[in-house]
């Protein structure tokens, strides 16, 4: 895209069309003014808009900046008056020490295993069930779906105790299986996929049925390829949710060799509560994978939330 310099428009000269960025085509060719109120007021509004956005972004990002900056300091430099916003010297040692001072490797490995397994189960069973709810008609379907919808208003915290007792009786507490069971069958995946399947015309399935394709074939060969954006959304959201989950691991995982990043980080904070720089290093490492995934797939996060949110 060509950057167009913002030329201040002169209101008294209608012969020369004002060439603000919005009234200019991508190639830089001036267009006729489409807005009646294009002019200095509009430019001012745009400037104020940018100023407000930059201010909001700064406030929102400040804690992350603090996190990264503190992780690059010596411990006694973290809290200073006034705040030292540029680390001097830049200390990389924390990023070396954290691996020997904590079990970060184990935590990351466990969290990765859990996140991948949960995401896989959620996407497969969720899209499979969504096909039944969206493209098939049989008795009992709507009652079942209502059961799924109803649980949205039921907080997990209210039934975590009976759930814990059941999973303990099944011998699953203090194993990674418990977290997989906990996270993999949420109503959310069914929802998101169903909302998306509803936008795919039924006539496509009808045509495939007439051609003799089985329902499973339609799911596999027609619905899945057509719903790649929804699958991407669900994959990313589930992965991030599982990665960030703190309460499930807190209740179920007692052995340190099973801990996830969140649980490990929390214990680490308790143990080394005066080592601010090292704690911030651990925090950066726990957020970093999520930040990378988010930057790569942010479009799918946004779309996934918009589909489940408003149309649901």
């Amino acid at each position: 895209m060509t950057t167009v310099p913002a030329v201040p428009a002169t209101p008294g000269a209608p012969a020369a069309p004002p060439s603000t960025p919005s009234s200019t085509a991508a190639g830089g060719r001036p267009l006729r003014p489409s807005r009646p109120d294009a002019g200095p007021a509009r430019l001012l509004g745009r400037g104020l808009g940018y100023a407000a956005m930059v201010l909001a972004a700064a406030v929102i990002l400040l804690p992350f900046a603090w996190m990264v900056i503190s992780s690059l300091k010596n411990n006694n430099q973290v809290f200073t008056v006034p705040v030292q916003w540029v680390p001097d010297p830049v200390v990389w040692q924390n990023y070396v020490d954290i691996w020997s001072r904590s079990d970060m490797t184990t935590w990351l490995k466990n969290t990765l295993v859990l996140s991948v397994a949960v995401t896989f189960l959620q996407v497969v069973t969720g899209s499979f069930a969504a096909y039944g709810f969206s493209k098939m008609h049989f008795p009992g379907r709507d009652v079942l779906f209502l059961a799924y919808v109803g649980t949205i208003a039921v907080p997990w915290q209210s039934y975590m105790i009976p759930q814990f007792i059941m999973l303990s009786n099944a011998g699953l507490s203090n194993t990674l299986w418990s977290i997989m069971a906990l996270q993999a069958f949420s109503a959310f995946g069914v929802f998101l996929m169903r909302q998306y399947f509803e936008t795919i015309p039924d006539s496509l399935c009808e045509a495939a049925r007439i051609d003799g394709m089985s329902e499973y074939g339609i799911w596999r060969r027609i619905m899945l390829p057509l719903s790649v954006p929804a699958i991407a959304s669900l994959t990313l959201l589930t992965f991030v949710n599982t990665w960030n989950d703190y309460l499930g691991p807190l209740i179920y995982l007692r052995s340190p060799e099973l801990w996830t990043v969140q649980l490990g980080l929390k214990t680490f904070i308790g143990q080394y509560n005066a080592e601010h720089a090292l704690i911030m290093t651990g925090s950066v490492l726990s957020v970093l994978p999520i930040a990378l995934i988010f930057m790569l797939g942010q479009r799918y996060f946004v779309e996934g939330i918009a589909t489940t949110g408003v149309k649901g």
Partner: peptide, 30 residues
């Protein structure tokens, strides 16, 4: 057709029922 429909929903529903619906009902008893 009903059987096929259920077969789609079942893998998720079993997990959902065992881990969400049953605990919610057990909660009241507990």
């Amino acid at each position: 057709n009903t059987l096929i429909g259920w077969s789609f929903i079942l893998p998720n529903f079993v997990g959902f029922a065992v881990l969400t619906l049953v605990p919610v009902i057990t909660l009241f008893y507990l």
